[in-house]
């Protein structure tokens, strides 16, 4: 939990100590969704009673549909109380995620988080969402591949968690509303790359993310996720099966499909997520989005920055599993 974070950050010698919850002077909230349960009982009622009561109230709101979603289908209540707690267990206990450079992410206003993508299964996106929600109190609005929205269950859960389709219109709309938007420009090339290529950034798409950031006049936050490469080491790819299932790849890992369902458990790698210094684009102006050379150069610059951050963070992490 947070105490655990603090400890990990402090024990590394010479590392920057990051404020875990900026602007939160009080005793650290436990990160549990139900704040009324962890608050001291004011009315003299037993805390368990309060927890049950608020649980019932939550259940009642869910059953009666008494909650709001935004135009993207984002359901903040479901996200904070159901979806994120499930991911948080992985985040804290399994991957022991450590955050570096949290102060680089603006506390408000639109910003585009540009990250490497890895791990065969996009758990890196989910862990990033937990990180920004718990430690920045900002929902991360990820831009996902259209495949996500074709798969039953995943389609609506992704929307309820606040994510949307990776297209310029959606990205511009979210940034215009001052949201924190996350994007993985490598796409399937990044997440589905073989284990041997770990931490080698693939091509950064066609630079669409730079155009979007230029038009919206928001800073780009380069982000390096270290640890996701080891969760499902992809040692082979069953291409014919992937084609049959309409998937971009069908991974073979040391445990999958050898161990069946047990092979779906990610390996407990140690994660470090580093947020780099914001790259302001205001000096270029929105018209630069129509200048392909500027866009290419900026794309390369972001890519090199993320690659450099990856190498540094890898060194800092040390052993992949300890």
């Amino acid at each position: 939990m947070n105490a655990h974070h603090q400890e990990r950050v402090d024990e590394v010698d010479g590392a920057r100590v990051i404020p875990i919850r900026p602007g939160d002077p009080g005793p650290d909230a436990s990160g549990m969704p139900d704040t009324s349960a962890s608050a001291p009982p004011r009315s003299g009622r037993h805390p368990v009673e309060r927890a049950v009561a608020s649980g019932l109230a939550f259940l009642r709101r869910r059953i009666t549909g008494d909650y709001e979603v935004d135009e993207f289908g984002f359901d903040p209540e479901l996200n904070a109380n159901v979806l994120l707690p499930m991911a948080r267990a992985l985040y804290e206990r399994w991957f022991r995620v450590e955050l570096v450079g949290l102060e680089n992410v603006p506390a408000e206003g639109g910003a585009l988080l540009v990250s490497n993508h890895s791990g065969t299964v996009p758990l890196d996106g989910i862990m990033l969402s937990v990180a920004t929600h718990d430690h920045l109190h900002r929902p991360l609005r990820l831009l996902g591949a259209d495949l996500v929205y074709q798969v039953p269950v995943l389609a609506h859960l992704a929307r309820k968690a606040g994510h949307t389709l990776a297209c310029p219109a959606d990205a511009a709309r979210l940034l215009g509303k001052g949201e924190l938007v996350g994007v993985f420009p490598e796409g399937f090339k990044g997440i589905g790359k073989p284990y041997a290529d770990r931490y080698k950034l693939q091509r950064f798409g066609r630079g669409g993310f730079v155009e979007t950031a230029l038009r919206a006049d928001v800073p780009i936050i380069p982000t390096a996720v270290v640890g996701a490469e080891e969760i499902y080491p992809k040692i082979a790819d069953l291409k014919p099966l992937a084609r049959l299932l309409g998937l971009p790849y069908f991974p073979i890992t040391p445990t999958f499909p050898l161990l069946g369902a047990a092979g779906l458990v990610p390996l407990p790698s140690k994660w470090v997520i580093r947020f780099g210094e914001p790259m302001p684009l205001s000096e270029y102006g929105p018209e630069a989005a129509d200048d392909p050379l500027t866009v290419f150069n900026l794309t390369d610059h972001v890519r090199e920055t993320v690659q450099q951050m990856l190498y540094e963070t890898l060194l800092r992490r040390g052993h992949p599993f300890l």
């Binding site: 135009e71 993207f72 289908g73 259209d146 929205y149 074709q150 389609a155 949307t164 389709l165 297209c167 219109a169 959606d170 709309r173």
Partner: peptide, 12 residues
């Protein structure tokens, strides 16, 4: 379709 933008404007 699953490839739709989240919100349609008249130009889409």
């Amino acid at each position: 379709s699953p490839k739709d933008p989240a919100v349609f404007t008249e130009e889409d």
